[in-house]
Amino acid sequence: MALPVDSAYTDSAGRGDWPKPLKAETCELSFYYGTRLVLKRVSVPIAECNITALIGPSGCGKSTFLRCFNRMHDLYPGTRYEGAIVLYPDSRNILDRGVDPIEVRMRLAMVFQKPNPFPKSVYENVAYGLRVRGIRDRRVIDEKVEQALRSAALWEEVKDRLSALGTSLSGGQQQRLCIARALATDPELLLLDEPTSALDPIATASIEELLQDLKRRVTILIVTHNMQQAARISDWTAFMYLGELVEFGPTKRLFTTPAKKQTEDYITGRFG
């Protein structure tokens, strides 16, 4: 598929702000629930080893957009994608009919809005992705679990109770467990759907700190309803409204000198 060269990106600063290298990008991505169009030709680039934030009022389609990346919508009947999501470096359109959603999900990882640890032990939660991938070697799994828990800044807190139920941890710990679960399989792209919305400020701060640390190794795409959070942690920001991309640009620029009136109204709190 030909990559869109202009038009879709409405950055006033022009091509200078174009992120690169890219880990992924969406090209005129549209999405339907039944006959209802909820994403309208959205094109966003995702810079490698950067944090890209999606902001916008609730119902603007940002979560729907995120869930397109690992084909979560395939699980429900009556949904339809149009356009493309291209994953680099192999330039593969993961929405192609020939692409198996499971294959996509094995390359990507996702953290959900509400912590959803499985009712299994902490250890088994993190090991789950590895087991699904057919890894049986106990030593490999042990090592990966520890690594992932360390990356998620949870190791020190749970190393003595790896066999405790994942659901017995506190909210913030549960969410970090879910992040560890996502990281254990070395995903190329980490999708986060409002990961801190169910957490208290302290737990939120620790997760934000964690993301800063993680972005050195993994590309992150995060949906947040909290503009301050987007401004604090992301490198790039996309502002969506009513299923459309209004503006995309470097976070700093977008928050200081937005090009679009709608963006300015939103970030100054005049609506949304």
Partner: peptide
């Protein structure tokens, strides 16, 4: 690998 899992 995926094939085998799909087979199951």
């Amino acid at each position: 690998m995926i094939k085998r899992r799909k087979f199951f």
